[in-house]
Design a protein around this nucleic acid. Structure first.
Length: 374
DNA sequence: AAGCCGGGGAA
DNA sequence: TTCCCAGGCTT
């Protein structure tokens, strides 16, 4: 079959704002989801209680943490701190020690701080609604919704990684989930869909569905109750949805160029093919991952070690898709370098020869600034 | 809006 | 290796 990707699909969504209602009524979605959950729910320690303290504890532990990894921590915390009072009474050191190995340690400090807040400001009773829960330290929109729905039966949807994935796929939402406002969109959509009768079950069901069935890489579409209702499945968009911009980090590279002159000629080298600018010519180069200075460079680089001048040029910047290049130049005369440096085998070019060599724009800009090239 | 926090499992 | 996990806080 021909895959309907990107543009065609985007168009079909944009031209119809009622897309969701047309394809899967909210009641139907909720009903099918709860049905699936009844048959597939895992038996997890925090599923046997509605105690807001225990629900809260489990949710903090499970932030950015897999269920299997969190279970033993949950059990140890419950055993050692059965109530919010006992947790509040503990020292931060004790809490951190019990948390060790779990990562994201501000969670542990916030956990302790929050326990103190609940004891001192609320007589040990957690607030019973989304808005007030969210005010507590370490409780964001996700955790507030989880506690509000599970412990207090409030119809507020949880929006976590699972919910993004499940809703984006089933309803064909192509918004970029890395954008902050997109979370508001899913929050609104989820609150339209959530079962008013069983908000707790709905929230746990949709997360369970995402965690065990609608998997990130290989969703089990073949045996899925939403088979015909799911846009991702019917349009073969499982790998596209949810849309998340790469966020590929831009790496910075600092180039310290040494322009070695011999009379009217200048040394240039052809660049390695495994890097940018392969096959192009630039100058002798000392590269670092952090900004440096001549002092430090002299200690690390055999050429620069003997450089007398301390006049680095201004910084030349060049932005590529995934890396930012920052270059400085320094000119030295070959005669000032020690004899051993001659063995490096620089090749010298006259100005007219240099004009003919293929050069990176970074080099070009510098040469023009210096009036070497017109 | 972006950076930061973290250990671990899966592909 | 890379991705992502039942996110939230700070700047």
């Amino acid at each position: 079959m021909t895959k309907t990707k990107g543009e065609d699909f985007q168009h079909s969504i944009n031209k119809d704002d009622n897309y969701i209602e047309n394809h899967l009524a909210r009641k139907k979605f909720s009903r099918k989801l709860l049905f699936w959950y009844a048959e597939n729910r895992r038996n997890l320690p925090w599923r046997h209680t509605k105690d807001p303290y225990k629900i809260w504890l489990s949710e903090i532990i499970l932030q950015q943490t897999r269920v299997a990894q969190g279970i033993p921590y949950y059990q140890r915390f419950i055993r050692q701190f059965p109530t919010v009072f006992s947790l509040a009474k503990a020292s931060e050191q004790d809490v951190l020690r019990l948390w060790q190995g779990l990562g994201y340690y501000t969670r542990a400090r916030n956990l302790h701080h929050c326990a103190l807040e609940v004891v001192e400001n609320f007589h040990g009773k957690f607030p019973d609604n989304f808005k007030d829960l969210k005010k507590l330290r370490g409780i964001g929109s996700y955790t507030a919704a989880a506690i509000a729905s599970i412990s207090f039966h409030q119809p507020v949807v949880v929006v976590d990684g699972n919910v993004f994935r499940v809703l984006a796929r089933i309803f064909g939402i192509t918004k970029d989930i890395s954008e902050l406002k997109t979370k508001d969109y899913f929050f609104a959509l989820g609150n339209e869909l959530i079962s008013k009768e069983h908000p707790d079950e709905f929230n746990q069901a949709i997360m369970e569905f995402g965690a065990t069935h609608c998997l990130p890489k290989i969703p089990l579409c073949g045996e899925c109750i939403f088979n015909k209702d799911c846009i991702a499945n019917t349009h073969d968009l499982q790998t596209v949805l949810p849309v998340k911009k790469k966020k590929q980090k831009v790496t910075k590279r600092y180039f310290y160029y040494v322009i070695i002159r011999k009379g009217k000629k200048v040394a240039m080298r052809k660049r390695n093919e495994k890097d940018i600018w392969h096959g192009l010519f630039d100058f002798y180069l000392a590269e670092t991952t952090k900004p440096s200075n001549l002092q430090k460079l002299r200690e690390e680089n055999k050429i620069l070690k003997n450089v007398q001048s301390d006049a680095l040029s201004k910084t030349y910047k060049h932005q590529l898709s995934h890396q930012q290049l920052l270059a400085k130049f320094i000119t030295v005369d070959l005669s000032t370098l020690p004899a051993e440096m001659l063995k490096v085998g620089f090749k010298f070019y006259s100005i007219s020869e240099i004009k003919k060599l293929p050069k990176p724009v970074l080099i070009l800009r510098y040469l023009k600034d210096e009036g070497i090239l017109e």
